[in-house]
Design a protein around this nucleic acid. Structure first.
Lengths: 237, 237
DNA sequence: CTTTTTATTGACTTAGAGTCAAAACGAGGC
DNA sequence: GCCTCGTTTTGACTCTAAGTCAATAAAAAG
């Protein structure tokens, strides 16, 4: 990332990064509705006009923040997918990354959902929408690669449709993150840990596709796998 | 529902209903951001001041709309849970209801998510929050009852934790509805039907818990079950 | 040091949420 | 009918915050 860009362009990117850092903080604290650009301008010590040199609208800033966060998620997935082990263990590593992300950004998908509402999408710039799609795609591909490997290795039944398995895993992971942070549902299901719920959902979905070894089988020692994931992939943090 | 309330109170409720109908339409069309109360007032042919006799804030209206929609969902679940058959077939009936709902209200959970963001929740009245929780609870309970019956009947392994199964099914259903309507993911996973994705996720999650008969077994003829569900439960619509 | 170009600003416009004094309505009495 | 008093409804008004753009400052060129 040591860029050889001309100073001007480099400074511009640095300032954009500064804006996004503060925007992320304020969005997290206040939610999109109460997130206000006068305060953001004050925080970054530039004028409101300058913010509009980088972003077209408030929505555009939120989309850029979401993309930034999605990029972090995809980076976690990237690291996880390098885990050395059976395909099911590698899936567990991605699952671990998804849970780690959920604990660090529990309300990310609130913002994410918002971005998809009718009025929102069209107010953000096409270019930023593209960048957002790319990060979503990266996450998808890391999961999909492991699923494909599993089919090739025979850990998933032959003829299993890779894309569908991938999207089902993503669905259940997003769903459990969302459901696990929703106060009404938390109450009803008896205040468990978000992370535990997510893991259960991921495991059962893999089992449902008959991804071997099943989490109920004697070949599967999750605790051991998790401590290896922690030690080998997510050491420092 | 033929109320014996004094005329005044009845008229008030009818007006509230009128407001919510229009609010739902406008929210669906424009999203929360662009949903504006002057237009709503014009649509219902009352002044903005009158809207504020019913609701404390714009957020409060959105929450009430969400509650109304959640009530419809719970009502679909209620009808589905009366299906006569094995526990797994009854689960399929609820799944069918969830998919029917998803097709009618594909972006409901966008609004729903929004309601949970920091700033939003505290702007709505406690009373409406309570009502929202009740409808969420109804949906939860219809699912949970079937899960409990399945454990008693031995269709799920003994000792399976009912609440966790229930929340996992809700998670995967919400997750697949959300993921299936997200443009980026739709593109990546190859533009399938929302309904087909949701069904797959539901089935595989049930299979993951070993809910018998498994969807892969020869005892399971989904097409036959679905046509019975359609005929017996969701005939007229 | 002067001119030209580029970057930055913050006062201004505008839209829309939320308020409240005044107007309209309605029930009861005469 | 019509006057009085309490209740309901209203829409003009205030205020906040997104988005604009003419004016200013800084940098580059001459």
């Amino acid at each position: 990332m040591v860029s050889k860009l001309p100073r001007k362009q480099r400074e511009r990117l640095e300032r954009e990064e500064l804006i996004l850092e503060h925007a992320q903080r304020l969005l997290g604290r206040d939610g999109f509705q109460d997130f206000n650009l006068d305060e953001l301008a004050r925080a970054v010590e530039y004028s409101k006009g300058t913010l509009y040199l980088h972003f077209e609208t408030k929505e555009d800033i939120a989309l850029a923040v979401s993309t930034r966060v999605m990029e972090m998620r995809a980076n976690l997935f990237e690291r996880a997918s390098a885990f050395n082990g059976s395909t099911r263990q590698r899936a567990a590593a991605i699952g671990y990354a998804a849970r780690k992300f959920a604990l660090e950004h529990p309300d990310h998908f609130c913002l994410q959902m918002m971005l998809k509402s009718n009025s929102f999408w069209e107010k953000s710039s096409p270019d930023r929408r593209r960048l957002h799609g790319i990060q979503t795609g990266r996450s998808f591909n890391f999961v999909n690669q492991i699923v494909t490997d599993a089919i090739v290795a025979g850990d998933l039944p032959p003829g299993t449709p890779a894309h569908v398995v991938t999207i089902s895993l993503i669905s259940t992971t997003i769903g459990s993150q969302v459901a696990g942070t929703e106060p009404d549902l938390q109450m009803l299901s008896g205040n468990g840990e978000l992370s535990a719920l997510m893991r259960l959902c991921q495991d059962r979905m893999c089992d449902g596709w008959q991804w071997r070894p099943l989490s109920t089988s004697s070949d599967w020692d999750y605790a051991a796998v998790e401590s290896r994931i922690r030690a080998e992939i997510f050491t420092e943090d």
